[in-house]
Design a protein around this nucleic acid. Structure first.
Lengths: 359, 359
DNA sequence: GGTTATGTTGAGACCGGTCTCAACCCGTTT
DNA sequence: AAACGGGTTGAGACCGGTCTCAACATAACC
C-alpha cells in the first residue's frame, strides 16, 4: 500500500495538517481555528477556514474523542424498536439528546440477557458517554454492573434494577395496574386474567421473582385489586410466558372451557391486540362477553370497536427524562441517584362491562 | 491534573500497554493477543488474556477505528422513528447489521432537509462505514451528494434520488397505488381524494415535482387509475401538506360540502388513522358513506371496524435489504448501483363499497 | 556445520485530532 | 531603555489502538 490512508474508494481524508499546509500555518493553529478553541487572529482564522473549505475538510469526531475522552454519543438499549413503546421512548430520548448535541447508538436486546450483554459491551467499547437501558432483567444485573464498573453513567428507563445505584425513570405501574384492575373487579368480574409476554421459568406464584420490574409492579397492582375484591388465590390468575405459547393461543385457552375468564388485563398494547383478535376469532363480543383493559394508549385502542379502556403512560417523557438525567450525569452531576416515577392516566372507553353470567 | 486520562468518575481506562506490563510482554504482543491477529504463542496468549481479565481490560473501539479506518458502525437517517414504518425498517436494518457485526447510529430528520443535513454531517464526522437514508427530498440531493463526495457508501431506502448513483431499495409504489385506487374507481367512485402529509410549496398540479419519490410514485399510480377510469382533471384530487393543516381537519374539509369526496386513498397508515377518526367524528359510516384505503398494514387497520383495505409493504425487508446492500458496499463491492424494487400486496378488508349517491 | 525457513517478539511509526508549554511580537509602563 | 503584559503562534506529546519491520530463536534442510 503506497497510499497513506484511504477510505473505501481510495480517497484520502483531508486532515487538519493538510489544511494547515494549505493555509501556511502550523497544525496547532489550524486546529485552533477549525476546532474553534484557543486564540487565533481573525486574519489567520479566515485563511484556515478558507483552505478547509477549498479542500473539503471534514472533522474526524473519533480523533477528537480520542484526545478529549468525550464522544458526544449515548447508547440506548431497548427490547425491540418495533414495539411502539420503545419507539416512542427512543424518540423522546433522541430529541433531548440531539438538542444537547448527542447522538444515539441503538441496540435491540429482544429482552434477552445475553444479547443485552453483547450490546452493552459494544457500546462501552465504542466509548459512549453514557447508556440508557431498559434492562431485560431487574434481578440479574451483571450487565448493568459492568456499565457502572466501567465508570460510565447509566440511566434505566421503564424498569429499575435491584442493587444498582443509578438514576431510573419509570411509571407508577403498581397503582396504575390497581386502578385498571379495579375497574374490572368493581364491575363484578371474579375470573380476571393478567397476561404478560415476559419469560419466566415457572408458572407464577407469590414467591416468584419476576424479572422485569415494570411487569412485576403491574402484577402487584393486579393482585392488590383482586385481593381487595376478596378474590381467593389471586396469583393463579397471573399468566406469564405468553410469547412462548403465543398470545392468541393463550387468550383462546383462557377464554374457553368451564373456567373461562370474563375479563383480561393485558400487560401491554401488543398483548391486548392478540387478545382482541382471539376474542373476535372466538366470536366473543367485547365488552358483553369479555372485558378487556390494557397498558399503553396505542393507536388502535382508540379506533377498534369497541374502544379499549387503557392506562396511558407518558412514554415520550420517560425517554426524554431519562436522556436528560443521563446528560446531566455525563456533564458531571454528582448528586445521589434518583428514581423518577411518572404518573399514568386512565383513558376510559367501552371495553368494560359487568360479566354476562356472574362468575 | 496529575492523573493520566480519566473517565467521568476519575477512573483511568485499562489499556493494551497496562495489560502488556502486567503480562510482562511488549505492547505489540499484548495487542496481538487481545486483538486476535498476528502470531502469538499459546503460553503468551494465556498470560496476556489472564492479565487483561484481572485488570478488567476493555478494548477501545475508537482507537481501533483510528488505525484501521473501519468503525463497524452504520448510520441510519429516518423521518421519525415513532412512525411504525420507520421503526420496522430500522429493525430490519438493525438485525442484518448486528448479524454482520455492525452497530447503528440513529437520527431523525423529521422530513426536514436541514435537520437531515446536520444528521448526515454528524454521522460522517463519526466515521460511520456507510449510511442508510430515507431522504427527505429526492430532488434536492446535496445532502446525499455530500455522503458520496466523502467517499462513504450510501444506500437509499423507501425513496430514490434523482442523479445520485447509489443503491436503493424501494417498493413498487406506482403499481400499488394504481391497484389500490382502481378498487375505488371500479366500485364507482368519481370523487376520490389522495392525501399525503408531504410538504409542498404549492397545491399539486401535474407539473409539480413532488419531493419524496415514494409519494410521487403513489400519486402517479393514483392518477393512472383515475385517468383509466375516465375521470377528468385527476390532479385536483391530490391533496398534499396535510401536516400543516392537520390530517383530521383536511379530511373533514374534504368530506363535507356539496363537493364532498366519497373515497379516500391515504398515503400512509397514520394519515388513514386521521381520516378514520374524522369520519367517525362526522358520523360517517365506512364503507357506506366513505370508502377508505391506505398504504401499510398497520396494526389498527385489521382491528378497526370495519377493517381497512390496505396495500401492505414488506417494510422489514426494505430495511434488511438496504442494510445488506450497504454492508456489501462497505466490504468493497464495486458493482454498479442497483435499485431493488420490492412488491407490495393487497390486503382486502371491508372498507370499500360503491358510493351511496353516484358522484 | 552453515544456510534457509518458520514462528515469535519488540521497537516505533501511525491514525487525526487536542492540549500544554515555550517563544515571539508589539504596545505600554516605569 | 528595560521590564512587563496580552495576544498569537509553533513544536511536540498524547489518546489507545494497529501494523510494519527488524531481530532473534528454533527447526529443517543439504
Amino acid at each position: 500500500m503506497s497510499e497513506p490512508a484511504a477510505t473505501g474508494n481510495g480517497r484520502r481524508e483531508v486532515t487538519v495538517s493538510d489544511v494547515a499546509v494549505a493555509a501556511g500555518v502550523s497544525k496547532a493553529t489550524a486546529a485552533r481555528a477549525l476546532g474553534d478553541y484557543g486564540a487565533v487572529s481573525d486574519a489567520v482564522r479566515d485563511r484556515v477556514l478558507g483552505a478547509a473549505d477549498r479542500l473539503g475538510y471534514r472533522p474526524n469526531a473519533l480523533a477528537r474523542t480520542m484526545s478529549t475522552g468525550r464522544s458526544n454519543t449515548l447508547g440506548i438499549v431497548v427490547g425491540d424498536i418495533e414495539n411502539p413503546f420503545f419507539a416512542q421512548a427512543t424518540r423522546g430520548a433522541a430529541d433531548v439528546a440531539a438538542a444537547a448535541g448527542f447522538d444515539l447508538i441503538l441496540s435491540n436486546s429482544d429482552e434477552d440477557l445475553e444479547t443485552e450483554a453483547k450490546a452493552i459491551g459494544v457500546q462501552l467499547a465504542k466509548r459512549v458517554d453514557g447508556l440508557l437501558v431498559a434492562s431485560a432483567s431487574s434481578v440479574e444485573t451483571e450487565n448493568l454492573r459492568s456499565v457502572v464498573d466501567a465508570g460510565r453513567p447509566l440511566v434505566l428507563f421503564d424498569r429499575t434494577a435491584q442493587g444498582v445505584e443509578v438514576d431510573s425513570v419509570i411509571a407508577a405501574n403498581r397503582s396504575g395496574a390497581r386502578e385498571l384492575t379495579s375497574l374490572l373487579v368493581d364491575a363484578g368480574h371474579r375470573r380476571v386474567a393478567f397476561i404478560s409476554t415476559m419469560t419466566h421459568p415457572t408458572d407464577f406464584d407469590r414467591s416468584a421473582v419476576v424479572a422485569t420490574s415494570s411487569v412485576a409492579e403491574r402484577i402487584e397492582g393486579f393482585l392488590d385489586a383482586l385481593t381487595a375484591g376478596g378474590i381467593e388465590h389471586p396469583e393463579r390468575h397471573v399468566h406469564l410466558n405468553a410469547r412462548r405459547e403465543g398470545v392468541e393461543r393463550m387468550a383462546t385457552r383462557l377464554l374457553t372451557g368451564p373456567e373461562a375468564v370474563t375479563a383480561i388485563v393485558a400487560s401491554d398494547s401488543l398483548i391486548a391486540l392478540g387478545v382482541f383478535r382471539a376474542a373476535r376469532e372466538l366470536g366473543l363480543q367485547i365488552p358483553r362477553d369479555l372485558s378487556l383493559v390494557a397498558f399503553d394508549d396505542a393507536d388502535w385502542t382508540g379506533v377498534a370497536t369497541p374502544g379499549i379502556t387503557v392506562m396511558a403512560q407518558p412514554i415520550h417523557e420517560i425517554g426524554a427524562e431519562a436522556a436528560e438525567l443521563l446528560i446531566r450525569r455525563v456533564r458531571g452531576d454528582g448528586r445521589p441517584p434518583v428514581t423518577r416515577v411518572l404518573k399514568q392516566h386512565l383513558v376510559e372507553r367501552q371495553s368494560v362491562a359487568p360479566p354476562a353470567s356472574p362468575g
